[in-house]
Simulated scan of single mutants.
Amino acid sequence: MFWGSRDRPAAEPLGKKGVMEEQKPLRFKKRETEVYVGNLPPDISEEEIRYLLKDFNPLRVHRVQSGYRCFAFVDLGSAHRVALAIQELNGKPFHSRKLYVNSSRRSPKRPPDGAQRPQELQVSQRPSGRGFAEIAAYLQLTPKAPGDPRETARPRTPLFAVPMEMRGSFLVPLLRECFRDLGWLATVCHTGGDVGLLVTSIVPRTPFFWAMHVTETLHQNMQALFSTLAEAEEQQPYLQDAAVQRGARCLAEYHLGTYGRAWNRCWVVDRVDSWAVVLFVDFGQSATVPVQCLRSLDSDDFWTIPPLAQPFMLRKGILSSYQRTHHILKGRITGALNLEPQILKFEELR
């Protein structure tokens, strides 16, 4: 167990020669290849922390919990990756919180004694975009107490809330602002049968994920879109500061894992000071990027090809491993959610 400054005992009862000794505070070895990640949810696992920093090839994760405070030191292998992680993740909404990410060589700020629990970003049912990234709360059904002692309790069934970025109240207005004509949406929602899905983003600890339906049409759209963006990226001016507002269509760098970075279409969900929260519409992935790093992409010519990825829900189990991203799942689409028809149900073949 780790002790905070308020919880730590003032003395060791049995020190050297029987003398009471003050317990020294815990210290961690700081390295230039480590990044500090603070304001994490108390129940987060090391696997989820590793997934959070998956784009930066984390080598080791050291999770620390002190009372309600949870943070981690993650070894990324190089100071360059540390700088990229800070630029990408610092201030990013995560599980209704705002991440604090900096170099582990800089001591993280500690709340003063008597400080209240860190303020969390409020999760809104309205499509405001706050708390947008990876919002996935789930509830447990509590079985009733059996009237007969011989009666066995039913196993608890998990219920998963639909992530905010997948809800129709958020997604449909976003798509309408980006693509204007949504005639293709009806065809997407009625897809069924045996399919292959290229996973682009996973909502941790839930059955929800984003993926591309692998077809010949997808292959053609990817070639046309990526070649067009590659030719246009240097010609597109950077957005003026006043233009970076919710609803702006723009271009930002997206990290494609081992394939490196490339400029891709995105939509501004929210802005916090000099940072913008954007959704990469072709990958279903959100990111927090500096305002000055966004390029203009407001011409309708860049938005004629429908988004490459769409939301899915696994019928059984969850995609908990970060290693499943950018891999193909084979299975069958069995229908759509009743209240959220834009989310298709997927049954994976084992």
Rank of each mutant, 00 (worst) to 15 (best):
G147H: 13
W184L: 06
P163S: 04
P207Y: 00
P146V: 03
V214E: 01
R180A: 14
A211E: 04
P149K: 15
H213K: 15
T215G: 09
T187V: 11
M212P: 08
V195K: 13
F209K: 03
M164I: 12
F208S: 08
T215M: 09
F209H: 00
L197P: 04
P149M: 11
E177V: 01
C178W: 00
T187H: 13
A153M: 15
A153D: 06
C178I: 04
R205T: 06
I202D: 04
P173D: 04
I202W: 02
P204S: 01
V195N: 08
T187C: 09
G147Y: 09
V203T: 09
M164Y: 11
V214T: 01
T200G: 09
F208C: 11
P155I: 05
F170H: 14
A161I: 02
A186V: 08
G147Q: 13
F209R: 04
A153F: 12
F170N: 12
R167S: 04
C178G: 11
P207D: 01
L159R: 12
R154K: 15
A161E: 05
A145T: 12
E165A: 13
L159D: 05
L198S: 11
P163Q: 05
P155F: 02
W210T: 05
G196L: 14
P149Q: 08
A211H: 08
P155Y: 03
R180M: 05
V188C: 11
V162N: 06
P146W: 01
D194R: 15
G168Y: 01
R205E: 03
V188Y: 02
W210V: 05
V162R: 06
P163F: 03
A211K: 08
A145R: 14
V195I: 09
T157R: 15
S201H: 13
H213V: 10
V214Y: 07
F179W: 07
S169G: 12
A161K: 11
R167P: 02
A186W: 02
